[in-house]
Simulated scan of single mutants.
Amino acid sequence: MRGRRTAVRDSAGWSALTRAERRVADLAAQGMTNQAVATALSVSPHTVDSHLRKVLRKLGVANRVALARRALHREHGQP
Score class of each variant (00 low, 15 high):
M1S: 10
R2A: 13
R2L: 12
R2M: 12
G3M: 05
R4A: 12
R4T: 12
R5W: 14
R5K: 14
A7V: 13
A7H: 15
R9V: 11
R9D: 01
R9T: 11
R9S: 10
R9K: 15
R9E: 04
S11C: 11
S11E: 15
S11D: 14
A12C: 12
A12G: 09
G13Y: 05
G13H: 00
W14A: 02
W14V: 01
S15W: 05
S15E: 12
S15A: 12
S15C: 07
A16S: 10
A16R: 04
L17I: 05
L17W: 03
T18E: 00
A20P: 03
A20Q: 11
R22H: 09
R23L: 09
R23W: 07
R23C: 05
R23Y: 06
V24S: 02
V24T: 00
A25E: 01
A25C: 07
A25D: 01
D26K: 06
L27H: 05
L27M: 10
L27C: 02
A28F: 03
A29L: 04
M32T: 08
M32K: 15
M32W: 13
T33L: 11
Q35C: 10
A36Y: 04
A38C: 03
A38M: 03
A38T: 05
A38L: 06
A38H: 03
V43C: 07
S44C: 00
S44H: 07
P45M: 03
H46P: 07
T47F: 09
V48I: 08
S50C: 12
S50I: 12
S50V: 14
S50G: 13
L52E: 06
L52T: 02
R53D: 00
K54P: 05
K54M: 14
K54L: 14
V55R: 02
V55Y: 03
V55F: 00
L56Q: 08
L56I: 07
L56C: 04
R57G: 09
R57D: 09
K58Q: 03
K58A: 00
K58S: 00
L59C: 01
L59D: 02
A62N: 11
A62G: 10
A62I: 02
N63R: 06
N63K: 02
R64E: 11
R64A: 09
R64Y: 07
R64T: 08
R64N: 10
R64S: 08
V65N: 11
V65A: 14
L67G: 04
L67F: 00
A68C: 04
R69P: 02
R69N: 13
R69F: 12
R69K: 13
R70I: 02
A71D: 07
L72F: 14
H73W: 15
H73D: 15
R74K: 12
E75N: 13
H76G: 06
H76Q: 13
Q78Y: 10
P79G: 05
